[in-house]
Design a protein around this nucleic acid. Structure first.
Length: 142
DNA sequence: GCCAACGTTGGC
DNA sequence: GCCAACGTTGGC
């Protein structure tokens, strides 16, 4: 069943461990290995087609791409113990203009993003307004 | 490379 | 159940 409106998310990855370029090369990847309860709970709220902003932490410190959920939450096959989940992500398109952390910090509409206040949360929700503003700054159409 | 923030672990 | 110690993340 298709929802009328999709949710938006932001995931973080250190490009040295898995970059946007890796996702483009792979075309699809299992977003597994999340070992934080809140991040996991966010993962579990994802549904097919949800848009996901791809942020490079540490090196880059910018949102570089738009991805989407192509497989809904399932048990993380890499979890040896505990109750963890994964989803599959696929690239949609790169941002024409990457949106850097400094830009986000300077944008009133983006001041409440978890990225700024909850810097360690690796999977976080993004509001409609925030999502639209980021794509606008990125000069990229959803 | 440093260190602040913060989530997790484990002793009591 | 508290809280100190510890490990990790991620900006600077």
């Amino acid at each position: 069943m298709l929802r009328m409106t999709l949710r938006h998310w932001l995931v973080k990855s250190e490009p040295s461990s898995y970059s946007w370029e890796d996702l483009v090369k792979d075309q699809r990847t299992s977003w597994d290995g999340v070992r934080n309860f809140e991040a996991r709970n966010n993962l579990r709220r994802m549904t097919q087609g949800d848009r996901v902003l791809f942020y490079h932490s540490n090196q880059g410190k910018q949102i570089v791409g738009l991805a989407q959920v192509v497989k809904e939450p399932y048990a993380d096959p890499k979890a040896r113990d505990g109750d963890w989940s994964a989803v599959d992500l696929a690239p949609v398109k790169p941002l024409k203009v990457p949106v850097g952390l400094a830009t986000i910090q300077g944008e009133p509409l983006l001041a409440k993003m978890s990225l700024l206040k909850r810097s360690r949360l690796s999977v976080q929700p993004v509001s409609d307004v925030e999502f639209r503003r980021i794509l606008e700054l990125a000069q990229t159409k959803a």
